[in-house]
Amino acid sequence: MSGRDEWSVGCRDLAGRRRDVTVFVSSDDKIVLVAPPGEAAVLGPLDVGRLRAALRDAVVVVAQHPE
Rank of each mutant, 00 (worst) to 15 (best):
L33P: 09
H65C: 09
D20C: 00
R18E: 15
V62R: 14
A58P: 08
D57F: 01
L51D: 00
D57H: 10
T22S: 03
K30T: 13
R17Q: 02
A54P: 13
R50Y: 12
A53R: 00
G44V: 09
D5P: 00
A53Q: 02
V25F: 06
A63E: 12
L55K: 04
V9N: 01
R17E: 11
G10Y: 05
A53G: 04
V42G: 02
A15D: 14
L55F: 04
V61K: 08
H65K: 12
F24I: 01
V9D: 01
V59W: 06
E6K: 01
A53D: 14
D5I: 06
R18G: 09
R52A: 15
V61A: 13
R17P: 00
G16E: 06
I31G: 03
D28T: 13
L46S: 13
V23M: 03
G38F: 06
V25P: 03
V62D: 07
E39L: 09
S27V: 13
A35K: 04
D13Y: 02
Q64L: 11
L46F: 07
R52C: 11
S2P: 14
T22A: 02
V59G: 10
E39N: 05
V61C: 07
A15K: 11
V34L: 12
P37R: 13
P36C: 04
L51I: 00
V9T: 09
D20P: 01
P45I: 07
R56C: 03
A53M: 05
G38Y: 05
C11A: 14
A41L: 09
L33F: 04
F24G: 02
A54I: 00
G10Q: 09
L43I: 09
L14F: 05
G38N: 11
V59A: 15
V62A: 08
R52Q: 14
P36W: 04
